[in-house]
Nucleic acid binder design. Sequence first.
DNA 1: CGGGTAAGTCAACATGCATTGACATAAGGA
DNA 2: TCCTTATGTCAATGCATGTTGACTTACCCG
Lengths: 197, 197
Amino acid sequence: MTELGEAAGVLAPPRRRDAAATRATILEAAKTAFAVTGYDRTSLRDIAALAGSDVALIPRYFGGKEGLFTEALKATIAPDRLRDWDRSRFSRDVAEMMAGAADIADPRTRTFQFLLQAATSPTTAPLLGQAVQERFLAPIRDWLGDEAGQERARVLAAIYIGFLVERLIRGAALEGAERTAFVERVTAVIDGVIGAE
Amino acid sequence: MTELGEAAGVLAPPRRRDAAATRATILEAAKTAFAVTGYDRTSLRDIAALAGSDVALIPRYFGGKEGLFTEALKATIAPDRLRDWDRSRFSRDVAEMMAGAADIADPRTRTFQFLLQAATSPTTAPLLGQAVQERFLAPIRDWLGDEAGQERARVLAAIYIGFLVERLIRGAALEGAERTAFVERVTAVIDGVIGAE
DNA sequence: CGGGTAAGTCAACATGCATTGACATAAGGA
DNA sequence: TCCTTATGTCAATGCATGTTGACTTACCCG
């Protein structure tokens, strides 16, 4: 795997012979590798090299490649809390972000790619759906306010995802007049959903 | 591969020893298989079995697995013309569809899964982006009218994609009050973009 | 009708993969 | 310090895959 670079053991903490630490290191490496290369194109050897560990530890600690993947998926889905977004700025911030280019170095981009990969697999899609419900839709609904229905969070999430995908396949950032028009329209669409004025 | 069933040679036409026909059959099988299982999880033996052909023909006819994939991708992207959608009904039709369940038997669902798979791969994403521009954004822009900017088509496409993904990870159809509210809101959002009243 | 060529079949190969088990070694308490 | 156990290392195995080449056979033109 050239896409992850050849750096090995970057994530490894100084302590040696610590099972919990190496486990965590491997899991972190797996999250990155799976996000960039996807499940099948990522070999356990790649992950082990990135983590600076040995391949044989992975089947032992995670029960196999699939176990590692599902655990990485769960760990990825659980965010470090939704940011306290300013409601009046939220839509414009999102619109500006979507008008830019997808940065593969941004861990959020990798996370999203990871989740999108999971969405396309029939086996992981249900797991993802349940997790999205718990960790994503519920917080958004709370953020939107008690009067908001489940459907409102759903619509917002869908639109958000759609723009992320569009940015992904677009590749480059928007420029000039198209950018300003795009930002305006995206802002309007999101405001229409979250009910800001 | 169990997911595609064990039926072999279903797509095969009666004529034998016809290179063009077998090539087309293999390509059709590849489009299906790639959409359902993704690039890596689909083996050439699976495709050959589905097409009722021999594995060795694929490297010979398509130059390898990658060649087959890109050709299947191009063939998938090119639709048999956009339908002449009724502008006044478009948003509601889409909303109703999105509220339903994703049907894997529907070839459009498979096509979308295929494209989504392609979007997550760094190698195929640019190819997909260019194709989406030509075959998708341009027609939508024409449909929206000359006064509409490129960004309007882009936003519509993004929202459309987002709802498709949401439906995919949701799995089941929406029911009851949430469904009606969802349909209403989706209709409003789309109308806001396409400018219908 | 017969031969030449295209089309299909089959077996084999090289490769990369996940996984397993045996072995070495560091860590920490008695 | 020594012994036990957890932890890391290494080599080997079995399997599935893409690809190649040699072989067989159907088709078609003369």
